Computed example of a mutant assay.
Amino acid sequence: MARPVRVETLLPVEVDFQRERASGLRRSGDSLEKVLDALSRSERELRASSGPARAERYPAYRALWKEAERLRWNLTVQREACGLRNHRDLDLIYPLPPLLKE
């Protein structure tokens, strides 16, 4: 029969797990924030342009929007894996603007 594991031996490991979870969430949030900032700049440039210049800028804007959407989804999944089920904070901290039409 296996011996029971002592709680005192698990605490340092659990602390390390919690630190890594927090660090991972921070890194994911930082990455999303950078892409959202670039998306905001791209959106301003797109709104200020028209005709061929707008058509030329749109693919880069759309790629940034898709990347932001992907990173936002990844952060949501990562939060859920950590037991955080309420994602209203994400809407407030990392709002994803609607995709502009071409």
Rank of each mutant, 00 (worst) to 15 (best):
L99K: 12
D30E: 15
L100F: 08
E45H: 07
R72E: 12
E8L: 06
E69W: 10
W65R: 06
L25S: 02
L90F: 07
E67V: 02
A38W: 08
L10K: 06
D89P: 00
S23G: 05
L10I: 09
D16K: 03
M1S: 13
S23A: 11
P4D: 07
E67K: 14
L36V: 09
R27S: 10
V35K: 09
R6N: 03
A48L: 10
L11Q: 08
S42Q: 06
L32C: 09
D30V: 14
E33W: 12
A63F: 14
A53P: 02
P12L: 05
R6E: 13
G83L: 04
P98V: 04
A53E: 14
S42M: 10
E20Y: 01
P52G: 00
D89S: 12
P97L: 11
S42W: 14
K101M: 12
W65N: 05
A55Y: 08
P97H: 09
S40I: 00
R27A: 15
P95L: 11
S49A: 15
N86W: 06
R3K: 13
L36H: 02
L75F: 14
G24K: 03
A55F: 13
E67P: 05
N86L: 12
A48V: 07
A2S: 05
R79T: 01
R21E: 07
R44G: 04
F17D: 06
L96K: 11
V5P: 01
R3G: 00
L71R: 11
R57Q: 15
T76C: 10
A81G: 08
V77I: 08
S50H: 01
L92P: 00
C82H: 09
A68Q: 09
A38S: 13
A81R: 05
R41Y: 14
L36K: 08
R19P: 01
L92N: 13
L71Y: 05
Q18D: 05
E56Q: 14
G51P: 13
K66Q: 15
S49Q: 10
L99P: 04
R26N: 04
N74C: 03
R85I: 07
D16I: 05
A55E: 15
V13E: 02
L46G: 02
V13P: 00
R44N: 15
N86D: 15
D89H: 03
E8Y: 03
T76K: 15
R70E: 14
E56R: 15
P4A: 13
V13F: 04
L90Y: 06
A60R: 13
L71E: 05
S28W: 01
R27W: 00
R72I: 06
V13W: 02
A60H: 14
R57C: 09
D30S: 05
P4Y: 11
S49K: 13
V35D: 11
S49N: 06
R79N: 06
A81N: 10
V15R: 08
R54C: 12
R44K: 14
P95F: 09
R3P: 00
L32I: 03
R72M: 02
W73T: 12
A53S: 10
A55N: 12
E20L: 13
W65D: 04
Y58C: 06
L84M: 04
R57S: 08
F17P: 00
A68E: 13
K34Q: 12
A53G: 00
